[in-house]
Design a protein around this nucleic acid. Structure first.
Lengths: 248, 248
DNA sequence: CGGTCTGTTGAAGGATTTCAACACTCGTGG
DNA sequence: CCACGAGTGTTGAAATCCTTCAACAGACCG
């Protein structure tokens, strides 16, 4: 369990890869609002989506652009960022394969309320809003699931507000690491490794603090053998103690 | 324009009042997801709702209670509060007549994620989730509107996260006052008066700060003749300067 | 191997909280 | 009608958490 400093993360690059139909169907089936559909229905829906690839750090769309598409992550990780006038970014969420992003609302001239960037090399399925809207008409159950999931996201967004306004930075960071481990955690020689590149700035933007403070807290957690971390990667050694810190 | 200290707020008390059918229909028609419906359709929907009255400070439902009802404000103001273990509250929103609250999600055993309390004497229309769900099946357009509005609330919740993480307290409070004035502002001798009782603690819980800091900032704004304020009330004298403060 | 990006650490300064004491408003009951 | 008490708001001073500035160290890339 040496304190290795070079990245233990797996390789996300896609090369000249093209998503197979099977992979597309599998990932579409993982999207929570399609999970009631059978294989044939998924095939119909699949035809409405087109796949694109993006390299790490590439912007998929910008905040304030006209919002025309609904997208689904097939491979890799995508981050949602809100910009401020002063140049400070707020990192709202990290998405894993099977999660959707983009515009859900059916109103005509909406704009994206956040920028989305590829955190690794990614493969994305996209569909035009109009197609998605008619899809909701054809499959009322899907429409209900979409509503449920949006309501759930609203809940978790409000829970985030509670954290940001009531907890000190150390607890917020501990909480964020626990959340990320549920999405991206994979057992490894270094502990529960978060399978995505994650910088101190990313953590800071999620916790609403400065990179320096994030760095200090991560150093402290490492000194206490709770985590193991290096450039752009984090592994959790002692999830229980981390969870204890997260709630006071 | 004397700096009166006694409350200039109007009387919200209901006495032995019972909501007339006309008032109920009017307020239901103001709910954003019912606004496409004609008068006859509203009459049908109205029959699914039952009215209740609550005195100021009464709790309508508690966080973590089993979530069975969807509710609509007919008269008065309702506040949404999330509690923390440490006893700190986070005030998520203040609702005016025509706004809905409670449970939207159609999943069976959800619990309320916040406590709601009557900010004034209030009249509330309630319907059981099952009835609302079948209503969404009968009126697909309403279902679409519900989705849009939930997505909108998600947006504004994320915008709130941006404020909380990037702006200093003074700007956050200025912003909150501007928002509240759009909902509750009424012209009066004291300026644009917020027509609801609003304590320093309410403001602090909205801005994620302490009552003392909220008080200091309000005093400062009053000294600069931007607002006019007393016990449980706030009027805005110079909305332009307040808006300037709100965005740096 | 040098440059650049990322992470670390120290020290000073600032914003906000906390603790504490006091002032004002309002409702209630004598 | 007035006095009292509880709830609400104000203000000061000390303490704390966090940011900012600055310098440096380690990792990655060509």
């Amino acid at each position: 369990m040496g304190s290795r400093k070079t990245t233990p993360l797996k390789d996300f690059s896609l090369g000249t890869h093209r998503c197979s139909v099977d992979l597309r169907l599998e990932k579409l089936g993982m999207v929570p609002f399609f999970d009631d559909l059978d294989h044939d229905e998924l095939r119909v829906i699949n035809q409405k989506f087109s796949a694109t690839h993006h390299h790490a750090d590439e912007t998929i769309y910008h905040q304030d652009e006209r919002a025309r598409m609904l997208r689904v992550v097939v491979h890799g990780a995508v981050k949602l960022v809100r910009h401020t006038m002063e140049g400070k970014d707020v990192l709202l969420d990290m998405l894993e394969p099977g999660e959707y992003f983009g515009n859900l609302s059916t109103t005509g001239n909406a704009v994206y309320s956040e920028t989305t960037r590829a955190q690794t090399d990614v493969c994305i399925l996209s569909t035009r809003m109009n197609d998605f809207r008619s899809l909701l008409n054809d499959y009322p159950n899907v429409a209900m699931r979409v509503l449920d999931i949006t309501a759930e996201r609203l809940q978790s967004s409000q829970e985030k507000i509670r954290h940001l306004t009531t907890l000190p930075v150390k607890e917020r960071i501990a909480h964020i690491l626990v959340m990320l481990s549920e999405k991206f955690g994979e057992q490894s020689a270094y502990g529960l490794l978060l399978q995505l590149p994650l910088s101190r700035k990313d953590l800071a933007d999620m916790a609403g603090t400065s990179t320096e403070t994030a760095s200090r807290i991560m150093s402290d957690l490492q000194d206490r053998n709770i985590i193991n971390t290096g450039r752009q990667w984090v592994a959790i050694c002692d999830i229980d103690r981390l969870a204890d810190i997260a709630d006071g």
